[in-house]
Amino acid sequence: MNHSTNEKHILSVLVENQPGVLARVAGLFSGRGFNIESLSVAETTEPRVSRMTIVTKGDMGVLEQIKKQLNKLVDVIKVVDFTGKESVQRELALIKVHARPENRAEVLRMVDIFRCRVIDVGTEYYTVELTGDEGKIGAFLNLIKPMGIKEIVRTGALALGRELK
């Protein structure tokens, strides 16, 4: 089946916290030609279990294979697919942006509009902490780019299902 279509999907994968489990998951994606847009891992409330949040691309056939192949790994406990489900998604970005005297005010104005924070101030750079979904982070980066971004680091998406109201 074809791996080319570019729909994004967020998968939440609960795994046994064993050494090598990240390599198993990463190896599965590379070995089978699946795509990883971003991946984040951390312990859950149960220390023996970690949660991986994986953003991947592909059509529904590819997505079905990805989920089945993940489930086949012995250390994978559960795979949750947020495609078509109500979920909350957030990503954290740290951005080191040029803040010369002439554009400092503009940077601060953006920070204010996007409700993010400056967490480190230097003579030439401000470091901005920004949380939001993909759209918000993209929009902020677009606007701030002309001022000159020195460095950027992003966590990749995190997601949880929404509670029914």
């Binding site: 089946m1 056939g61 079905e64 294979q65 089945k68 192949q69 489930n71 086949k72």
Partner: peptide, 8 residues
Amino acid sequence: DPSSIRKN
């Protein structure tokens, strides 16, 4: 093996 089904 569920992953064999609809793979090809």
